[in-house]
Amino acid sequence: MAEVVSIGDILAVVALKEVKTKVGGGVPIFIVEDIEEQEKIAMILGKILNAMVHNLENGMYIVTRH
């Protein structure tokens, strides 16, 4: 709500299957086949969770709430 942004929680990670070994931990991880599917899943997750989609540019998208 406030304009001052602090990164909230990472709600989900959408990772390409090539880089799935690079991620782990306590958040749901969605493994996808290609960039097209990744973009789509990330967008839908963002809409469902009312959250922002960020691209780490290493084959992973994260969904976070600010």
């Binding site: 942004v5 973009e39 990330a42 967008m43 963002g46 989609v53 960020h54 691209n55 540019e57």
Partner: peptide
């Protein structure tokens, strides 16, 4: 080279992950 960082002048505004956005 950061293709997802939204900039105004030399200031980073935010990171926008989705291509469509």
């Amino acid at each position: 080279g950061y293709k997802t960082l939204l900039m105004v002048d030399e200031v980073v505004i935010m990171e926008v992950g989705l291509e469509s956005a």
